[in-house]
């Protein structure tokens, strides 16, 4: 079994093309998950009981069903409903919906990890609920959620590979085409794995840097 390095170099442009799409959908999915997670956690901690229940049910729903099935549901469902959306969009929606649920739980754990004493110290100074949240709780919680958010981001990056099944031309899609065309499975999947490691490593490095910056400020 030979391993053809030249084959990899020759096909590097194909991988790079896929990489751009992978990075794009990853970045968008992470951003939307962070935002959507915020909406969900606000509902989850709201004073309105119905809203709380709805958010809790939503979190349970997305956490207990595969993102792939959600993608199929949205992609094929939208086509049958007469409003076909692209595989890219369907993937993005499913990834954000699922991971927004996880992110909401991360936010919640971060908020609830701030001790009641800190809250009371704020109240004793005359802060109202909202002020206690924004001055005392949130800045401390943000520091604590960075590591789990970083992990969730890696989950998202890896799950973007699933949109290849909806014919979105990201890295995994190109890799499959290339294998079918050239039969150079070893070279292709070695390179593909390397590219994913590259993306996830850079991402977690950036997150660690962010965490470190905030630590130093503390």
């Amino acid at each position: 079994m030979s391993f053809d390095v030249n084959f990899i170099l020759r096909n590097l442009p194909v991988f790079l093309e896929g990489l751009t799409v992978t990075v794009q959908i990853s970045a968008l999915a992470i951003a939307f998950s962070l935002i959507w997670g915020l909406v969900v956690v606000i509902a989850r901690l709201s004073r309105v009981k119905a809203l709380r229940g709805l958010a809790a049910a939503y979190v349970e729903l997305v956490r207990n069903t595969p993102v792939l099935v959600q993608m199929y549901f949205i992609f094929f469902g939208s086509a049958v409903a007469g409003y076909p959306i692209s595989g890219f969009m369907a993937g993005l929606i499913a990834l954000s919906a699922q991971n927004g649920g996880y992110v909401a739980e991360i936010y919640r754990a971060g908020i609830q990890s701030i001790s009641q004493r800190q809250v009371e110290a704020g109240m004793a100074l005359g802060m109202q609920g909202r002020q206690v949240f924004s001055i005392v709780v949130l800045p401390q919680a943000i520091r604590r959620v960075i590591p789990p958010i970083s992990n969730q981001g890696i989950v998202i990056i890896k799950d973007t590979a699933l949109v290849s099944t909806l014919s979105v031309a990201e890295m995994t899609y190109h890799a499959r085409l290339l294998t079918d065309r050239t039969a150079a499975a070893y070279e292709v999947f070695f390179t593909l794995a390397l590219f994913y490691l590259l993306v996830t490593t850079v991402f977690s490095g950036v997150m660690r840097l962010l965490e470190w910056r905030l630590r130093v400020a503390q």
């Binding site: 079994m1 590979a161 290849s164 995994t172 490593t201």
Partner: peptide, 23 residues
């Protein structure tokens, strides 16, 4: 662990699916 945490499950499945027959 580093590899398993940084590479998508789908890629590992494809690798198995495509590579083992060649081997």
């Amino acid at each position: 662990l580093y590899i398993m945490r940084g590479v998508p499950l789908l890629v590992l499945l494809f690798a198995m699916y495509y590579m083992l027959p060649y081997a």
